[in-house]
Computed example of a mutant assay.
Amino acid sequence: MPFLKRKTAGEAVFDTVNNIVMLIICFLTLYPIWYVLVNSFNDGADAMQGGIFWVPRVFSLDNYRAVFASSGIMTAMGVTVAKTLVGTVVHVFFTAMVAYAYSRRELIGRKFYMVVGTITLFFGGGLIPTYLLIRDLGLLDSFWVYIIPAMFSFFDLIIFLSFFRELPDALEEAAKMDGANDFKIFYSIVLPCSMPVVATIALFHGVHQWNDYFTGMIYINDTNLQPIQTYLYRVVAQSSSNQMMAAAPGVAAQTVTSQSIKLATMVVTTLPIVLAYPFLQKYFVKGLMIGSIKG
């Protein structure tokens, strides 16, 4: 057996303190989620008395029955799924196409474009000019307001660019000798060889699309086009929960409250991405490492 170095007293104390601090941080991060989950499964009227911290005191599904009795949440969920899927595909393809053009050494004005693009990482036009632009483009109360403004991200372009520069030039040279044009090379060779970075950017943007509530809050007045996160915002910030209580058939009014409806709605809207994140986390780490090490 190899010789194992024994820890000094200082190292043992450091490891112990470090573990305790990390456990405290994990608890402070996870407990609010657990608190919301537990109270969402508790009888609403009973929860008003307080004192529920670890397990439901009076287990009840009435809060969730009231949430799903509202047609608005299912419509909002459909909008969120649609904009996440369509927006992610469009964003990945368009950003990758622009990044491929940036990666070409023969691109005229490439350095100038890089400077202009880098400036956009630090400075934006502001909400009012952006709203006026969206209005003039006719995107207010339109599903495409979720897609078109989010088609391109210079930050994601940099990640794509780092990966494209590592692809062997021989691949493109061989394709050009066979008569392939730039678009054919991009679609048939570059994209298939770039699946790791494509998956990474798709996850980045997919999570962004799912969590985005601001776009629906500012640019959408039609409730049939609002995403699930905007729906959650309106339930928490406004009186939508009272309307849901009144519209829920088969649910006794005394078993649910405005607060319990809000907690159940929060669980329903955030649970899918919370369950998916542990399986997708490795791709986020991989995306940050792309281009940092050249082999």
Score class of each variant (00 low, 15 high):
Asn181Pro: 07
Thr230Phe: 06
Val268His: 11
Leu133Asp: 01
His208Ile: 09
Leu191Ala: 08
Tyr35Ile: 14
Ala12Leu: 14
Ala199Asn: 04
Leu132Ser: 01
Gly109Val: 00
Lys7Ser: 13
Leu61Val: 07
Met217His: 13
Thr118Cys: 11
Asp46Thr: 03
Ile33Arg: 13
Ser103Cys: 02
Leu271Asp: 08
Ser71Ile: 01
Ser60Ala: 08
Thr84Trp: 03
Glu11Ala: 15
Asn224Pro: 04
Leu271Tyr: 14
Phe152Gly: 09
Ala150His: 09
Ala253Val: 12
Ser71Leu: 08
Gly78Gln: 12
Glu172Gln: 13
Pro192Met: 03
Gly124Asn: 14
Leu61Cys: 07
Phe93Trp: 02
Ile147Gln: 00
Val92Phe: 01
Phe183Arg: 00
Leu167Cys: 02
Met74Ala: 10
Pro2Thr: 14
Thr265Asp: 04
Asp222Tyr: 07
Lys83Pro: 07
Tyr277Ser: 09
Phe154Met: 00
Gln229Ser: 08
Gln226Arg: 15
Phe93Ser: 13
Leu37Met: 15
Leu30Met: 12
Asp136Arg: 14
Ile220Asn: 04
His91Phe: 11
Trp144Leu: 13
Val90Ala: 12
Met151Asn: 03
Gly72Arg: 15
Val207Thr: 03
Gly72Ser: 15
Val190Met: 09
Ile134Arg: 10
His205Met: 15
Arg105Pro: 03
Val13Ser: 11
Ser71Val: 06
Asn181Phe: 03
Glu172Val: 13
Met22Gln: 07
Arg57Leu: 08
